[in-house]
Design a binder for these strands. Sequence first.
DNA 1: CGAAAATTAAAACGTACGTTTGAATAATAC
DNA 2: GTATTATTCAAACGTACGTTTTAATTTTCG
Lengths: 222, 222
Amino acid sequence: MTDSLAKGHGDTRSRILDVAEVLFMEQGFDGTSMRSITSHAGVNLAAVNYHFGSKEQLIQEVFHRRLTELNRIRLTRLGELEAEAGGASIKPSRIVDAFFGTALRMASDVEGGGHTFMRLLGRTYTEPQAFVRKFLAEEYAECVEHFLAALYRALPEVDRNEILWRFHFMMGAMSYAIAGTDALQLVTGKFDDEDPSRLESRLMSFLLGGLRAPLADFGAAQ
Amino acid sequence: MTDSLAKGHGDTRSRILDVAEVLFMEQGFDGTSMRSITSHAGVNLAAVNYHFGSKEQLIQEVFHRRLTELNRIRLTRLGELEAEAGGASIKPSRIVDAFFGTALRMASDVEGGGHTFMRLLGRTYTEPQAFVRKFLAEEYAECVEHFLAALYRALPEVDRNEILWRFHFMMGAMSYAIAGTDALQLVTGKFDDEDPSRLESRLMSFLLGGLRAPLADFGAAQ
DNA sequence: CGAAAATTAAAACGTACGTTTGAATAATAC
DNA sequence: GTATTATTCAAACGTACGTTTTAATTTTCG
């Protein structure tokens, strides 16, 4: 009943986290039972409640262990850019890369689980359950605050609400690019298979094009 | 136990669909029980199985009734553009408006339920459950095929895979713009409140900027 | 009106879920 | 080596779920 993925890798706690990450991505939170998690991990049913307290706390821990690392890297990279610039303004494309590029590079780590996690994360931004949105917001708050501030400084002539919206749009484009490939594959047939490595450059071009687009005038459409 | 929204509006079948649409959006499919749906609609628990067969078929019908209409409008609009052009090429911005603008205009219809439905739809693109992805793909297949063909004709010099990817990115940006406002509000504090009417023009600018962005060269980042 | 069909109603069925319990085992500390 | 703590285990608990059943009621239509 144990999974080849998890058998013998790490202790009980780690095995549960690794298996839960995969199953949550494949079947959602509600669609993944405690029994499914523990049997795939090769541990006893009661182990989740013993090590994490509840299913809800397990979900939070699955996100916490990856997000802390992701946002740490993002802020480190932003700090490097600010140090390089030494008070001068940073190019928006570099800020965007520090935030979105870092996520895409985690998403390209298939073996280490980064790919699985980023697909899960992308879907979870629109998760209806309140407790999920709440702790995601807490995990993100500091990082997003710093990056928005950097973008405000880099684009002083652009209205801050515009930047906020475009940041939101970029989050959406990236999340779907990673999480929603199944959907478009089903609709359109198939993507070419040599894609994964090109996703990063394709998406970054798109994001920067959107970020730099002329502001909408709120009159007639073009 | 009945909801003010649904009481007395339409027959049992319609009341169930209207209530289910709202609850699915607010709490997800698994988070919404048959008992919650029927009690809010003021109908008997057995009514869903009588009228729809199962919860799964109810979910499909919630999407079918709106998506058929949405994609019909999209294709009608595309047909009008092709008739206007009379064999000449259509501006990409007009094609994008026919597809995404139409969705955004449905999303701005708060009273008629279009807003609720589009928020639900945006989240459902990344739904893990296979049967959901399957029938969404079927509902979309014809419409997406026509729009991709139109974009291919409008941008003959651009590689078709690039167009496909950018169409995907645009879908993501739009879906999150509609479905994921909660997430960013939590992260960033608040948007200004006079937004809803401006979302369409803001997003269209972003989408067109992304669509027109210079193609990535697959070498070093800028 | 009165028979036939469609719809609504209350109650129950079987199942799967998250969690808890209390004993058994393993690891740690003195 | 023994006492103490941490962990694993099998079993069960109570609950909520989707669905089904059977009867009552309403609607349809000749």
